[in-house]
Amino acid sequence: MFQNARKTKVLIVDDEEAIRSLLCDLLQDNYECETAINAEEAMVRLARKPFDIVLCDIQMPGMSGLDLLREVKQREVDVTVVMVSAVHDTRRAISALRLGAYDYIVKPFELDEVELSLHRASEHRRLILENRAYQNNLEKLVAERTKQLERVNAHLRESSARLSLTVEELYRTYRSTLAALGAALDVRDAETKGHSERVVAYSLRLGRQLKLSEKEMIALEQGALLHDIGKIGVPDAILLKPGKLTPQEWEKMRMHTIIGVKIIKDIDFLQGAIPVVGQHHEHWDGSGYSNGLKGEEIALNARIFAVADTIDAMTSDRPYRKALPLEVVEKELRKYCGTQFDPMVVDAFLQIPYEEWTQIKQQIEEFGVYQARQLVLPEYMEAYTH
């Protein structure tokens, strides 16, 4: 029914020889099939050679199919799993999907149903591999661009006679690169498209309300753009997981603040961004991460960003809900004022009219973050017009 340019490698795991033979006969024209009589043998085969898909029965003597699925995920074996069961048990199906199975088929099954499920699983895996290759290439491009900027920076230090003319151009180049990197990070997670642009504008508006200096504003902008750069180091299986993360996966996800600081700590012109990158998940009462900082132990820019991030998260569409109105945002900020959020920053938000927040978001959606900054900070944007 379905043709693949390269035959997808399928490992069929079932304790019934008749089922194994039936599935092999059905799939052999379009798939490269091997079989295993139980979960233990399947783990041996997976360790010896790569497979694209595992088609596995749930009820087997000894190690069950769910045990095999759990073992595959714990060992981070790079394979897509489709489960098969003779029992139509909704709870068992949900358990399999929560453990990471791509699909669930009930015996007795129609052969077309099996082939359709494997085709979908194969396409799903192809998209994951293509996305992974894209991300790897993107990270290489970012690294190369960063090295280029460092070389430009070194050259500028040696060119003191022309320093006054080159600093502005250097900053514009840095800013464009940071904006491109922020956009690239948003692309990795389709649910947060445009997030970096919006939180930059919201952070700068709060910074203006709090009368930050120009130097503090530049550091705030850089930190807001790069706040999630550490997610480059988070595996796709965790970052893009559609379901709830396990405690172990949450531990890895929370490492992105530490990874982010390591990425930028040796880049001189990004030193001001470090507090936001490393502290944007700290809470005013000390209940956040990574270091459990509280109160004014948390950098002001990180406290500002925490409020800006909440504004954007609540007023943006998500797959599971529509954007919420600013009245709900205000209620949330008031509720967690003094626990999660700095009361001073919450008060700054409350001083700004709803219409202004709406206008900033509309400017970004219609004209991009550059025009939105002109609205937020007209005097701060003068440097871009020289």
Rank of each mutant, 00 (worst) to 15 (best):
E297M: 09
I304C: 03
D312I: 03
V307Y: 01
D317T: 12
T315D: 08
V328N: 02
L333T: 05
N301E: 15
M314G: 00
L326T: 03
A308E: 05
V328H: 14
I298M: 06
E330K: 15
I311Q: 05
P353D: 14
V346F: 09
L324M: 15
D312F: 01
A306I: 05
G292A: 11
L333P: 01
L350F: 07
D347N: 13
R321A: 13
Y336I: 00
R321V: 14
R318N: 08
C337Y: 00
D342Y: 04
M344S: 13
L333N: 01
V346W: 08
L300D: 06
V328F: 10
T315M: 12
R334E: 10
A308Y: 08
D342S: 09
W357G: 07
V329P: 03
E327F: 00
L293C: 05
I311V: 15
L326G: 00
M344W: 01
K331C: 03
F349G: 02
K335S: 09
T339F: 08
T310C: 09
P325Q: 09
Q351P: 00
L333Y: 02
D347M: 10
D317L: 06
V345Y: 04
W357R: 11
P343D: 10
E296N: 15
Y336H: 12
Y320F: 11
D347R: 13
V328L: 13
A306R: 10
N301R: 03
E355N: 09
Y320A: 10
L333R: 00
A313Y: 11
T310G: 01
P319H: 09
T358E: 14
D342K: 02
L350P: 04
R318L: 14
E332S: 13
E327L: 13
V345A: 04
A302T: 02
F341L: 05
A348W: 01
P353S: 15
V329I: 06
R318G: 11
R321C: 09
E296G: 10
G295P: 07
T310Y: 01
V345E: 03
L324R: 15
A313G: 12
L326R: 09
Q340E: 10
E332G: 06
A302V: 04
K335E: 12
Y354T: 12
L300Y: 08
A313H: 11
K335P: 00
M314W: 07
R303P: 01
M344Y: 08
L350S: 10
